[in-house]
């Protein structure tokens, strides 16, 4: 139940009191549920019920933060309005719903007969239209009765789209696959570590520069570039600008909304070029660079990369 702010309650009560010609205090008391309605012609229930949105379909379990938005609706003899924040766009509920005159001659029977038309679980969206569905009948010309009917929640901060999707339970379908992958990876790593010894050369010596000196393998592509180009280009522009900033900017440069491979041939071509290029440069740096960072053939002169020394043997 959402508490209606005091100033809104007061404003609503004033408007209603003006329309009905009764004291403000009476209407206010009635709205708060402290006193019985002055006559049967006024609405039976004044405290609207706001149902909390059922966000089970988001399957994320979070309550979307919403701001309460107070909506004034034309005088309606409707016991309750279910403001389902997700079923309808709530901020269009600002127009009078099927408005019913509640003054004098309309009598209690109107008040009682009206609810089935718009209340309950009949699609509220149908009655919610940008324009009034029906003009108030017995309200004098120029008097627009306003009454606080309900407090509905404003649009959720996050857009919850619940389009039907083919889904399966995470347990067991995803968890089993993940757990298997995890076990396989652990097994693979243990076997690898039993077979291959991590390199440990002699103690670090500042006076004995090994020839060649190579960076870790993931930087060897860059080192390879550095041997071709000026450091300003290979050491700055390629890794810094195109590598880092360029990669981060990809989603903002590629505005093509499609994810179909046939629609994004150019993007795929570029990325594949990058992959092939970096793989080639890294392989060159790891395997085909010997003393003085000159070209060698690994099958002729052996591997000049210490991380790999125990991996591959060439006799």
């Amino acid at each position: 139940m959402v508490d209606i702010p005091e100033h809104l309650l007061l404003r609503s009560a004033e408007a209603k009191a003006k329309a009905l010609g009764v004291p403000v205090e009476q209407v206010l008391a009635e709205m708060r549920g402290e006193a019985l309605p002055p006559s049967a012609s006024t609405t039976p229930s004044e405290t609207p019920e706001v149902s909390t949105p059922d966000d089970s379909e988001t399957s994320a379990g979070e309550e979307p933060a919403v701001e309460a938005d107070v909506v004034a609706i034309g005088d309606v003899a409707e016991p309750e309005v279910q403001a389902d924040a997700q079923a309808v766009e709530p901020d269009v509920v600002e127009q009078p719903l099927a408005a019913v005159a509640t003054t004098g001659d309309a009598g209690p029977d109107v008040a009682n007969s009206q609810p089935p038309a718009s209340g309950g679980d009949s699609p509220l969206a149908a009655t919610v239209s940008p324009r009034p569905v029906a003009q108030p009948e017995a309200v004098p010309e120029g008097v627009r009765t306003q009454r606080l009917l309900t407090v509905v929640k404003a649009r959720a901060i996050q857009q919850v789209k619940s389009s039907p999707a083919d889904k399966v339970n995470t347990w067991p379908h995803l968890m089993i696959a993940e757990f298997t992958a995890l076990l396989v990876m652990t097994g693979f790593l243990i076997i690898l570590s039993v077979i291959l010894q991590a390199p440990l050369l002699e103690l670090a010596n500042f006076n004995a520069t090994p020839n060649p000196s190579k960076a870790p393998w993931y930087f060897l592509g860059l080192q390879e570039l550095l041997s071709y180009y000026d450091p300003q280009i290979a050491g700055v522009i390629v890794p810094g600008i195109s590598g880092l900033i360029g990669f981060m900017a990809i989603p903002y440069i590629d505005r093509n909304p499609s994810t179909k491979p046939s629609d994004r041939k150019f993007a795929i071509l570029l990325f594949t070029f990058f992959l092939a290029g970096s793989a080639t440069l890294t392989m060159l740096g790891v395997l085909f660079r010997g003393p003085g960072f000159n070209f060698t053939y690994p099958w002729a002169d052996g591997i000049w990369f210490d991380d790999l020394k125990d991996w591959v043997y060439f006799e």
């Binding site: 390199p199 103690l203 670090a204 004995a208 960076a215 870790p216 860059l222």
Partner: peptide, 21 residues
Amino acid sequence: PWDQLALWAVTVGTNMGGFTP
């Protein structure tokens, strides 16, 4: 590990970073 491999790989790597203007 502070062996020859570690020392000179990091030397080469940081030298490359040092080229940034």
